[in-house]
Design a protein around this nucleic acid. Structure first.
Lengths: 338, 338
DNA sequence: GGCCCGGGTGATCAATTGATCAGCCGCGAG
DNA sequence: CTCGCGGCTGATCAATTGATCACCCGGGCC
């Protein structure tokens, strides 16, 4: 695979042509004329030169940037984008680093008129602090999930929406409902309310979503905020749940856990989330790789913003079980996919 | 000029975009969409990334290949091509290495119907030994210069033509005249001869020329072959001559030495040589840098095949005196000239 | 010998890229 | 405040590049 299993004659020719192309900047046509070959042939030779490693294209990585890891994540899970935040020592700094990356991503993507559905969670809640667009953006942030019983928890979607809107001069739209209600009946009643229905509808039509990925251990956000009882979490675990997006729990293979609690959820459904063109998920904490893996496999995420540790852990996990996963190796630099 | 005088923010963005383009193989348009920029802007950013060294494209050089040196020669002297043969220890091996390179170049360029004007010299004479085209090529090799008094010297153009023709199954056309005759009158008489005129005419119309670069020291080919007397060489030196192509002597600035001997020369004139579309010059020995420099500056050479030592020496010489010479530095990888 | 297959070839077309240019913005001078 | 200038921006077009495809050639097989 290296340049070594070429005859030295071939090697010289490839090197010569590649040098002419990449260093001297000649066109393939000029080179073809020079070497008495057809242009397509020169193209093939250049391709071969890249493949054989005669040409080496490398991109400098600023310290703390994990571009390679990002590429692997994108390839492995078919993501539109993946952003790996620089490694930090303590969990809070790590969370902030991830949030900063997510905020910068948002800044790049937001346009006047953008509608963003927003989830909950500690990671997501940090995003507004780092969200500082250059100039005013008239975007609308819509709560995609009900809140916790402890009303003004800063990890509530409503709060996050408000902070985001404040930061960019846009507007926010709250969902006046708890995340989980007592029964299906109550939920259906709630969904009939104009205010609730209207907001969920707006969220479903969003251009973009910003969501957290929740875990299932005893101090996950759902538990801490009092949305779900420890017993309910326990039950979810027993059903194979590994994590959630906006309240929708999935198992490690990305299958939705159909369970009583699911019917009591007031939030964007997995299907509705799927319909949002650009779903950005934020995940940081240490115990999350399984949750992240499950949610990724559910196929609703377009962009993952994550810390380095989780990124590696998720890739390890994905590689060991499940599908063999088409690795990106062998695809040389500049090879187009298609 | 390095990646260091960019703000780390810019650096990150450039690295991110460059990575996406060069490693992941996305198109500029996809990247533009991703980063919310116009496509031309992405193009400019990529350009900047290359310029700043964020992207590093390097081409592996097989040992003994001096692609960098070749590029400098091309740039410095406006050559269509330059080939630097691998370094060899003893002069004869060195000469052979150069000849081999020249022969390979010929093989690449020769077509059925090609007409090649051929000069003389020890370097040129080695070329046929390495000239082994894959298959028969119906080319015509025409002597571009008269021979030496010692008739069958293998360094005579006629001999070289014959060997080349033999090697590829082509034809050769001899020039039946000495390189230098006694007087202008004799030369003019000779040029009236059909055989002579016809050959010189054919040489002038050649598609390609293969010539040596001669020096002016006492054992240069012209002297050894008896074409010129030591006294004549001495006189040329005094007139500033540093070397010759097919008998036309030039000074270090590339100016033709107008001298009595010039009128007694039976060979392609500098002007006729100039008219040949592709003039390939071969030069190897150790004392030749000045000769090569002078001939290059005469502007008749399109392709130079040379050993590493002479290549370096010529570039040193050219850099120190004469024009400041536009260096290729600063031109990053993949920058198109134009 | 005739036939078929795989790999390589160059003609051709579509996609991507590079270059140009008019317009716009911000800034400093007048 | 107005003007003019330099630099940046994205629309647009031309050049280059990548992909496809029909074809050909050589080698094994029948």
């Amino acid at each position: 695979m290296g340049p070594d299993d070429l005859s030295s004659e071939d090697f010289e020719r490839l090197a010569r042509i590649a040098h002419r192309y990449y260093v001297d900047g000649r066109t393939q046509e000029e080179i073809a004329r020079e070497f008495g070959q057809s242009r397509p042939k020169v193209q093939r030779l250049l391709e071969r030169a890249r493949w054989a490693g005669v040409v080496d294209i490398r991109v400098a990585s600023p310290p703390g940037l994990n571009l390679e890891l990002e590429t692997r994540l994108r390839d492995e899970f078919g993501l539109a984008d993946a952003i790996v935040a620089p490694r930090r020592d303590d969990p809070q700094s790590q969370r902030e680093a991830v949030a900063r990356s997510a905020a910068q991503f948002l800044e790049r993507r937001l346009r006047d008129g953008s509608v963003v559905a927003v989830g909950h969670g500690r990671d997501t809640a940090e995003v507004p602090r780092f969200f500082r667009p250059r100039r005013r953006v008239d975007a609308l942030f819509v709560s995609a999930m009900g809140g916790s019983p402890r009303v003004d928890t800063p990890t509530n979607p409503n709060e996050i929406c408000r902070s985001l809107a404040d930061a960019c001069g846009g507007r926010s739209q709250s969902l006046y409902a708890p995340a989980y209600v007592e029964s299906v009946e109550v939920r259906d009643r709630l969904l009939e309310q104009d205010a609730v229905a209207h907001t969920l509808d707006a969220a479903a039509r969003a251009d973009m979503a910003l969501v957290g990925i929740g875990g299932v251990n005893d101090d996950c956000t759902m538990a801490r905020s009092g949305c779900l009882l420890p017993a309910e979490i326990e039950r979810l675990r027993r059903q194979g749940a590994v994590g959630d997006v906006v309240g929708n729990y999935v198992d490690v293979d990305g299958r939705l856990i159909a369970s009583p609690h699911q019917e009591r959820l007031v939030a964007l459904s997995i299907e509705s989330l799927h319909a949002v063109p650009l779903v950005v998920a934020v995940a940081s904490e240490a115990e999350k790789p399984l949750a992240i893996l499950g949610v990724l496999r559910a196929g609703v995420i377009d962009v993952l913003v994550v810390d380095e540790g989780n990124a590696n852990a998720v890739l390890d996990r994905a590689g060991s079980d499940g599908a063999p996963a088409p690795t990106a190796a062998g695809r040389g630099p500049m090879a187009r996919r298609r």
